[in-house]
């Protein structure tokens, strides 16, 4: 089981290094998603399954999709189709695909071997997290909700301002 941690750690570090050294934003995103999945696997190994699920759903799901949206929106128009075709060449998928295949193999191994479930560390499940979150940390939840509202309003305001100016034709 220790080997799974070290393999995942190696995948996380190498894919992060590849992500920040890519010249192309979409290629970097592919490697970054692999890095986030590797970190999610480490969370699972460490006995934090709820954090692992959140890492996959919120980080690798929502935040990375936001990045993809913006990168795709920044180059609209007919040349963009050619650009995307050049970005997503079949050869590009080999690196991230290989790394995530290793992660997948590890995940299948962990699930198949039921006795291999993390036992060295105490598992802190979603029940304990939920009880603590809405018990002593309820003020933090309120603050986080206000922060998210501020982020929503800020993003809406910035984007709306941009479109209004472009409609007037001076942008």
């Amino acid at each position: 089981m220790n080997a799974i941690f070290y393999i995942s750690a190696a995948i996380a570090v190498s894919s992060t290094a590849l992500a920040i050294s890519r010249l192309n934003a979409v290629h970097a995103l592919l490697y970054l998603i692999v890095s986030l999945l590797a970190v999610a696997q480490i969370f699972f190994i460490l006995g934090a399954p709820f954090a692992a699920a959140l890492e996959v759903i919120v980080y690798a799901g929502a935040i990375m999709v936001l990045f993809v949206f913006v990168i795709m929106m920044l180059n609209l128009g007919p040349p963009a189709i050619d650009t995307e075709r050049r970005w997503l060449t079949p050869g590009m998928w080999i690196g991230p695909g290989l790394l995530s295949a290793i992660l997948m193999a590890q995940l299948v191994f962990v699930i198949a071997e039921t006795s291999a479930y993390p036992s060295g560390y105490h598992e802190v499940g979603s029940h304990a997290v939920g009880l603590a979150l809405f018990g002593p940390y309820v003020l933090g939840v309120e603050l986080a909700s206000m922060l998210l509202l501020a982020g929503l309003v800020g993003a809406y305001h910035l984007a709306r301002h941009d479109f209004r100016k472009r409609d007037k034709g001076d942008a």
Binding site: I63, L66, F67, V70, L74, L148
Partner: peptide
């Protein structure tokens, strides 16, 4: 916090 930061940050990038 990361979600709030990235939404405002990407709106600024767009701008």
């Amino acid at each position: 916090m990361a979600a709030a930061e990235v939404s405002v940050g990407l709106a600024l990038v767009f701008h």
